[in-house]
Each structure stands twice: as C-alpha cells, then as structure tokens.
Design a protein around this nucleic acid. Structure first.
Lengths: 295, 295
DNA sequence: AGATATTTGCAACAAATAAATCATTAAAAT
DNA sequence: ATTTTAATGATTTATTTGTTGCAAATATCT
C-alpha cells in the first residue's frame, strides 16, 4: 500500500526541511496515497488545498524528475498492494483470532466501528435530524454533561463556539455550573448528555430547566433513560463495550454529527464564523505546525 | 477489487452482443482491471491493441456517459479493495447511498465507522500496544490536551482515576495547567493529545517535559505531526470528516482503547478500584436511575 | 533595520487527453 | 447485385494535464 517505502520514509524524514506549502502537500500525500495514484495532480492539489505547482515542486524536492514519476511510484505500490502479497498478510492478521494484547484492542475497535454503523439506521437518523432541528430553532443552547459525559458536552460546546453559535456550557468551578440557567427561557434549549449511570446532578438540572419552560434535547443511551421523560427530542447511542467501562465514543460521534448538521444548515454563516475564529486564533499564536523554539 | 460487480457482470453478460473490437477491448478490461484505474485511456487502448475511440464506445455500450465514468468505477473499486480491512465497511458506504435529508448524518457516521475499522490495521495495533506498555510502566501519568483535544484528555484522565491509576490532568484555571509538571521526573510519563491544528501550548509543555526527562506518549494525527519528534511512542488517528471541522471521535476511541489495555493489564487491581469507586459514589448519591423527586 | 534568499501565488504554455465528427469498410438484407 | 446498416478507422476539437517563468510576499541573516 505504500510506495516502495523509500519514498514514504524519505518524505517523513525530510518533512521538517520542507517549506510550509510543501509540508501541506506532503502530508496530504502521506495520508491519501490512493489519491495520488488514482486522480490527477490538479485534483490532488485541490484536495490538499495547495497550488498545482506545489505538487510538482514536491516531486522535485524528493529528487524525482517530475510529478509523473511520483504518481507512477504510488500506482505501482497500489498495484501489488491491491490483491497481491500484502493483502493476504493483512487478511491473515484479521482472521487470525489468537489471544493477545492487540486482540483486545482490535476487538474493541471493531465493536465501536459496528456501533457507529448501527447509528445509520433510519430511526437514529430521524432522531438526529429532529434533534438538530430543535437545536437550530433555539435562541441559545445550554449544554450539560456531568462526569463521563463532560467530555462530550465540552466538545459540543467548543465546536459551537467556533461556529459562532450562542452556546453556554453549564460547568464551572465549585459546583456553580448550573447558575447560568437562571436566565434561560422557553426560547432556549438545553442539550443534556447523560448515559448510565446517570449523574443525579444532570437530571436535577434538566428537570429544573424543564420547569422553567426550557426545551430539552438529550443524548442518552436508552429509550428507558430517565432523560426521555424530560426531553422533547432524544438521540440514543450505544455505550456497551467489552471493556470494564462504558464507551463514550458513539456519544461523541452523535454530538459531532449534530454540530455538523447545525453548521450545514447555514453554510455562509458558518464559513464566516470559522474565518473569524481563524483570524482571532492566528493573532493569538494559538497554533503551531512545528515544535516551537524554546526561549 | 472488481468495479461495483454490476459492471463486471454486465460486461460478461453482454459480451456476446458486442462487436469484435468491443470484445477485444472488454476482454482486456476484464483481465486488467487495475490498468483501467491507473493509466490513461489511450494507453489501455494501446495495450489492448484497439483504437482509443473503441474504449469510449465500450463505455457507452455499457450505458455509461463516457469513459471517465468507467475509470471512476474501477478506481473506486481499487480504492476499497486496495486498502485492506476498512474495505468492507467502506463498501457499505457506497452501496447504502440513499439520498435524503439525513444523508449528511449517515455519510458522516459511516465515514467514522470506517475510520475506526482502519485503526485495526496491524501497524495501529502495534502502536497502541507499545503506547499502553509505556504508560503502564510509568509511576505517574500526566495527561495533556488543549482546545479540541481537551475532551479526550479529560476523558482519559477521568477513566484513569476510576481505575485507581495515578493520573494528573494538566489543566487548570488561569493557565496554571502546566504547573503540576514541576514535580514530574523521568519515572513519569506525559500523555499528550494534539491534532492539527496543533495548539502551541501543548507543544511547548511537551517539550519542557521532555527536557525534564519525562517520557512522552502521544495521540496525534500524522507521522509528520510535530509531536512525533518528542515522543517515545505515538499512536496515529485519522481526523478527517466531510464536515467543516476535524473529528475527535477516532482520537477518543484510541484513548478508550488505551484505558482498556491498561485496565486489562491487572484485572484484580482494576476490579478492586472500580468497586471502591462505586461505593464512594454511592455514598455521595452521585447517580440515579430515575428522575429525582424535586424538593 | 536593511539586504538577501527563499517561498509562494499567478498566469501562460505545450503536450496529452477524451469525446465528437466524418469517411471508409465490411456485413446483412432485400 | 444493390441497397442499407452497422462497425471501424482516421481526423478534429475543446478540455485538461503537468510544467515553467516571473513577480509579490515572506522569512532570514547580517
């Protein structure tokens, strides 16, 4: 699957010596080796968000006569990776169900993969869509997730912030998280994430919000979750895993899908908000692509 | 490895109804499916000893708008077949493409599912195992994840505390998150999660920790991530999604797998720790299974 | 801060591509 | 045997491809 290896390794080795654009191109090539073999250079460049010329420059940087040679290498790799030798080895690893440490991992990941696939069933999709609709009609979205669900709640809130949406994360030091709800009205919606075992605090806050007339949308794990009774809309996600604890991965996926649907709803606005965020973070030097020099 | 099957079968079925030249072209295509995807039409025609126009005619004979569509089908087939394990999952993506309103959601979830499946490849599993080994040898595990990666870092830390492991989350109000590192030694390990765009703060802290002799294990998105240079062990997770932002779901899955491997390492200890946590939380009335009565 | 390299984006270019068109040939039907 | 039909080959056309040269922008070094 990899081009003669030497090329791939060379790219990784010399990555730090490349210019920013070259790195961007190289990164895409490393992550999408099939594309290099299967689509035209200009299209690869478009996907990598890079000028066409940069792809040529990348090839030359690697010591090749031109881009065509690069493509040829990847094509050759894809040829005998497709149904040749490497494929069988790979298959044997998958089939070979021997006990081992990596077996636990593999089994778990396959399970998670299947769970996400299951979320594509019509009922789930309907619920996702309904939940997104309800959320987008809200003036303000309060997000609540305690204990393990905190990660999901926080991530949802973080993405919503980037999208410029009015999102309030019900969390704070010293148990003050729920205070922000005092100003919530019936025009607002509370998104509450809770899976078994359900945190008492989350249920109480949700109930309180509902009493205030706030609409409730929930991400939870079952039709018989206590949240269902409180919610206008509920999305269900599996949490079982063959480990000691419940998995949050499907819940996070659901929340990301919700974000995506909301973002898709008004693309221009989303794009503008993202650009604004980009500029802001750029000025703050929030991000880096290489190891910062120590001072 | 074959294009959507229907095409291949159609060619075989209608083979007798073709003219001599068309048969010659079709035969070559059937016998060299990879060439169709990887080289230009004219070259395929040359290899098949057929006029270039004949290839176009073949495509139209099969009911396709043009040769490009034929190539596209073979390219898609090569994509799925070529890349080992995720193939099956992704195939379902192509097939189950009902276009509806919730198409975005469905597509996104199937993509995530495929990405998790991809994590089962031998290389990923090796890395997961190595990372888990390194973590379990640590006296104390510091966990660092800024911005979007915060969710993953927090969740990892949360699970680790339930498991009774010595885990320290490098986060705190007012930018004091890194302070806990002052006491870190070479017996400890820092687990840092960062995906593109890489938060400057995370890189700086990781670099500082490394200078102190702290071992570094990272969850990141690419072999050319700046974290790789700092890390003893690195696990790579995909982050692409067809939404506006990168997905964290695979990263979270990876972190859950790591937790699981660590828990599995010493089952008795894990069970004891979980039971202890259960009791503790029970006394605090942390969890409920029904809607709490309002007071 | 100024001077010098380097990097980057843009536009133009020639080569190659797939498709469309027309002419020629072979086959079938009357 | 002649007309009609389909098939094949050659030619042309509008795109698209990979590449290159050059100016603006950026970074680097005295």
């Amino acid at each position: 699957m990899q081009p003669s290896d030497s090329l791939r390794e060379q790219m990784i080795a010399q990555y730090d010596a490349m210019s920013a654009q070259l790195q961007q191109a190289a990164r895409y090539v490393l992550e999408h080796p099939q594309d290099v073999a299967l689509v035209s250079m200009r299209e690869v460049a478009r996907h990598a968000a890079v000028q066409p010329a940069t792809m040529t420059r990348l090839a030359k940087f690697l010591g090749l006569p031109g881009y065509d040679e690069l493509r040829a290498q990847y094509a050759a790799a894809l040829r005998d990776g497709g149904d040749g030798f490497a494929a069988k080895v790979r298959k044997r690893v998958v089939e070979g169900s021997e006990r081992g440490v990596s077996d636990i991992a593999s089994h778990m990941l396959q399970g998670l993969s299947a769970q996400l696939a299951k979320l594509c069933e019509p009922d789930s999709l309907r619920r996702l869509e309904a939940a997104a609709d309800r959320l987008k009609s809200a003036r303000k979205v309060y997000v609540l997730g305690l204990r393990s669900s905190h990660a999901v709640a926080w991530h949802f809130h973080y993405v919503m912030t980037l999208l410029g949406e009015r999102s309030v994360h019900l969390d704070g030091p010293g148990g003050t998280g729920g205070d922000a709800l005092v100003r919530a009205t019936s025009e607002d919606v509370l998104l509450v994430i809770s899976i078994k075992p359900y945190a008492t605090g989350a249920l109480e806050l949700a109930q309180l919000a509902k009493a205030q007339g706030v609409g409730i949308v929930s991400i939870t794990d079952s039709e018989v979750s206590p949240l269902v009774a409180l919610s206008e809309q509920a999305v269900f996600c599996p949490t079982e895993s063959d480990s000691f604890f419940h998995t949050l991965t499907p819940a996070l996926a659901v929340s990301e899908v919700l974000c995506s649907l909301l973002a898709e709803f008004d693309r221009p606005k989303t794009l503008e908000a993202l650009q604004q965020a980009d500029e802001h973070l750029l000025h703050l030097n929030t991000y880096a692509t290489a190891i910062p020099r120590r001072r």
